[in-house]
Design a binder for these strands. Structure first.
Length: 87
DNA sequence: CGTATGACGTGCA
DNA sequence: GTGCACGCCATAC
């Protein structure tokens, strides 16, 4: 089965452990397209799934960026998971 | 098939 | 340190 770039992105994002945030560039690299970080954000925006912790994907600047379900929700989730991971 | 868009990143002033 | 512009890739229309 040949998986598309977005499928690869989804897998990479799903592999992100809680408390761990990756920037779009990293996800794109894991998807074999280190230059497609643009498409990564675009794909996540057009294809949100409850099984994909896309909220763990942030910008390289450390900024959250955006979130289909609400930017504030993403910020809250990140803070929550980071707090859990920190113990 | 071609154009436009975008949750980005880096460089330069 | 902040702001503006360019470049890159995939998706949607």
């Amino acid at each position: 089965m040949k998986i598309d770039f977005k499928e690869k992105v989804f897998e990479a994002v799903k592999k992100i452990p809680r408390g761990r945030t990756l920037n779009y560039k990293q996800v794109a690299k894991l998807a074999d397209r280190p230059r497609a970080y643009r498409a990564v954000g675009n794909i996540l925006r057009s294809n949100y799934d409850p099984t994909i912790p896309c909220h763990r994907v942030i910008r390289s600047d450390g900024k959250i960026g955006g979130y289909n379900r609400g930017i504030e929700l993403k910020a809250k989730l990140l803070k929550q998971e980071q707090s859990l991971n920190k113990e």
